[in-house]
Design a protein around this nucleic acid. Structure first.
Length: 192
DNA sequence: CGATTTTGACCTGCGC
DNA sequence: GCGCAGGTCAAAATCG
């Protein structure tokens, strides 16, 4: 059914090249102002402890979920002590008409859930590359449906297979704002 | 035929 | 302790 694949060409805005504008989220909270939507999102990011849940993330698939036929007695996740390296989190705000931005990587959608503060559902994507546990979540602001917030979790360990426009270029340079709960010392200034 | 998407169910963490 | 919110997985369906 969905046939919309690429991209910014359609549209009403001939704009230049890619048209989308990239805006990094300010840590200062300029957007908070009195908006609940924006504030909420920021608060969540900074509030998250990123303790890395032992849930089935890697290692063995194990029975994370409950199969309808069998009731797993195994509680998902029991690894205690395992810390695993922390996953860097990058949040980007993009202005686009489509939620799915092609950054050059292959993403497989693995879930969609609606958030409370947003009328639009949040989509969860995962890198299909083997060994690349990078996750990406896309969320659209109900306040500004034109604004799409993309949050990247982890870092790609493989090179981009697609050399789209300069998107990758920008993405590569986008590693600026890090929304983490324990590792965000430097990089305070977007422009160093 | 394979890969990917879609939807529902289920689990975990936190708050109260 | 229960409920809410968010996040993930799994099976089925669909597209190419």
């Amino acid at each position: 059914m969905e046939n919309y694949h690429m991209l910014f060409g359609t549209t009403t805005q001939p704009s230049s090249s890619t048209s989308s504008s990239y805006n990094f989220m300010p840590t200062a909270g300029t957007t908070s102002s009195s908006l609940h939507g924006g504030g909420s999102f920021l608060a969540e990011l900074s509030n998250k402890d990123a303790a890395s849940p032992p849930v089935a993330g890697h290692g063995e698939s194990s029975a994370g979920g409950a199969a309808e036929a069998d009731r797993p007695t195994v509680p998902a996740g029991k690894r205690k002590g395992e810390k695993k390296e922390r996953r860097p989190r990058y949040a980007f705000q993009t202005r686009s008409e489509v939620d799915i931005l092609d950054d050059g990587y292959r993403w497989r959608k693995y879930g969609q859930k609606a958030v409370k503060n947003n009328r639009f559902p949040r989509s969860y994507y995962r890198c299909t590359h083997q060994g690349c546990n990078v996750k990406k979540q896309v969320q659209r602001l109900s306040r500004d449906e034109a604004v799409v917030v993309t949050t990247y979790e982890g870092t790609h360990t493989h090179a981009i297979e697609k050399s789209n426009d300069n998107f990758e270029h920008i993405l590569t340079q986008m590693h600026i704002y890090t929304a983490m709960g324990s590792n965000f010392s430097s990089s305070h200034n977007m422009f160093h």
